[in-house]
Design a protein around this nucleic acid. Structure first.
Length: 488
DNA sequence: CATCATGCCAC
DNA sequence: GTGGCG
DNA sequence: GATG
């Protein structure tokens, strides 16, 4: 089976700025011997490492010299202009090469979130991924095309050097002939033809528009298109009653849900939720997870994990917290409300190994997917100008309730980008014979729940400690959330 | 040539 | 059962 | 699309 290490760990030490400059002088220029390469390769599994070592040996020095790309027309932060030395302040370099307004690193107060050296190329790959998602038939053979791009993107997002040649990108996990070919095309021309074509594709842009509706994915987007609808108004006019309830909400708040939520507002919403939780049972712990925790400046939604050391307090708690927030007029709609975990008494089903279909399901956490709006001022009576000034948009808020003993898994599971989670699950499956889930970890051998969060002194004292223990128990090096931005 | 994350909710 | 979602 |  695939022994690939989670991509985020591809270059575990390369993400440390101090090591980066050191490695920079070793890897791309090949001025190292194979022993030094182990500094980088040390975390890779043996078969893969053997392969990489072979490939590195086989790369001729001239292959690694910077290839001079033509000056691209107006591609903002285009193809690799020139081999950049990361050693000369990586942060500065990246910021100045991508900031269009010439504002260099004004945000020193905030650790720069994932802004990988290959961001511009990653953007191209994301474009193609979207095209694949929207055009590939889900049941067709190409259904995994989009996912393959996600893998390549996550590798590149974790790779701390600017790609300078085809052999260099080809040696990365998930990047092979096709991806390398695209990179080469982009390097040569400054653009990728497929991406350019997509820009003028009417059908594709309509599909993208529909795909952005909460509750609508590729299949439904194509379905809408095939009905002849071309914009949101068409949906409202011709298809409103055929939409699911959730899709209607998605359409209704289409523009508002697309707005990014500033960090301060995310924090304020989280605070409100925590206050309500503690009003019900004192002693709740909360972590704001999702993109916010990975350091994103604007979040698409707010995700919080709530837990309480007393299991009685988390049982069915999701119902109480939603009721409480509803009473206080914070919640305008409930998209879904899941209490399956509580219904099973918050207890994982034991002794059900693999190969079962029914009843083998691991508990999923109680959660509420909500539409949120600050009730600070009266919505209906607000004047137009008042609304102009403070539009008070509706926000997407997810509240996840975890029993204390699996809270670390919940925090970990909900903090990573989707590709990070896939990597994590695959790693657990293939290397640890474990089944990772945000609601806990079980042995694949005997189906028993595995406690990865307690130490000899008992359960973790808080959620972040719990999360760190999960890393440790899995034999993984701790990575701060900012370094889990596998989705580019 | 098979695999690729997972399980639940709404329909 | 299918599609959509985190 | 990449991998074992």
């Amino acid at each position: 089976m695939a022994l690939k290490f989670p991509t985020i760990y591809l270059l575990p030490k390369g993400l440390d700025p101090g090591r980066m400059s050191e490695l920079e002088s070793q890897i791309p220029s090949l001025t190292y011997d194979i022993n030094e390469a182990e500094v980088v390769l040390g975390k890779l599994s043996h078969p893969q490492r053997a392969k990489l070592e072979l490939q590195i040996r086989n790369i001729a020095t001239e292959d690694l010299l910077p290839s001079q790309p033509p000056d691209s027309a107006d591609v903002n932060s285009g193809p690799p202009a020139k081999r950049r030395k990361v050693s000369e302040s990586a942060a500065h370099d990246v910021v100045s090469s991508t900031a269009p307004d010439g504002e260099t690193a004004t945000d020193v107060s905030r650790p720069t979130p994932a802004n990988p050296p290959n961001a511009a190329f990653i953007e191209q790959l994301k474009e193609i991924r979207t095209i694949r998602t929207l055009t590939d038939d889900k049941d067709g053979e190409r259904a995994y095309g989009a996912r393959a791009y996600s893998t390549a993107i996550s590798t590149l997002a974790a790779y701390p050097y600017r790609i300078s040649c085809v052999p260099e990108i080809e040696r990365l996990p998930g990047c092979s002939t096709k991806i390398a070919g695209l990179w080469d095309e982009w390097r040569e021309n400054g653009f990728i033809q497929e991406v350019e074509d997509a820009k003028t594709d009417e059908k594709l842009s309509v599909l993208k528009l529909f795909y952005d509706i909460w509750g609508v994915a590729a299949t439904t987007a194509r379905e809408f298109y095939s009905k002849g609808w071309r914009d949101i108004d068409d949906i409202v006019e011709y298809g409103w009653s055929s939409l699911t309830r959730v899709q209607q909400i998605g359409v209704k708040f289409y523009d508002e849900f697309k707005l990014k939520i500033p960090r301060a507002e995310v924090e304020s919403i989280g605070q409100t939720i925590l206050e309500h939780a503690n009003k019900i049972h004192e002693g709740f712990h909360m972590v704001i997870v999702g993109g916010y925790r990975r350091g994103k400046n604007g979040s698409g939604d707010v995700d919080v994990v709530l837990s309480h050391p007393n299991p009685d307090c988390t049982l069915n708690f999701v119902l109480d917290i939603v009721a409480s927030l509803e009473d206080s007029q914070y919640i305008t709609h409930t998209l879904t409300l899941s209490t399956k975990n509580s219904e099973r008494g918050q207890t994982p089903v034991a002794w059900k190994g693999e190969g079962r279909k029914a009843g083998t399901g691991f508990d999923t956490l109680d959660k509420a997917l909500l539409v949120w709006q600050e009730p600070a001022w009266d919505r209906s009576s607000a004047s137009a100008s008042q609304k102009q000034k403070n539009p008070n948009p509706h926000r997407r808020v997810d509240i996840i309730i975890s029993p204390w003993r699996t809270a670390g898994c919940a925090v970990l599971g909900w903090s990573g980008a989707t590709t990070f989670q896939r990597d994590l699950r695959r790693y657990c499956k293939e290397k640890k014979q474990l089944k990772f889930d945000s609601s806990g970890i079980r042995s694949r051998a005997n189906g028993r729940w595995v406690d990865v969060e307690s130490d000899p002194d008992g359960p973790a004292p808080d959620l972040l400690t719990a999360e760190k223990r999960v890393f440790a128990s899995l034999g993984l090096e701790w990575r701060p959330p900012e370094e889990r931005c596998t989705d580019g």
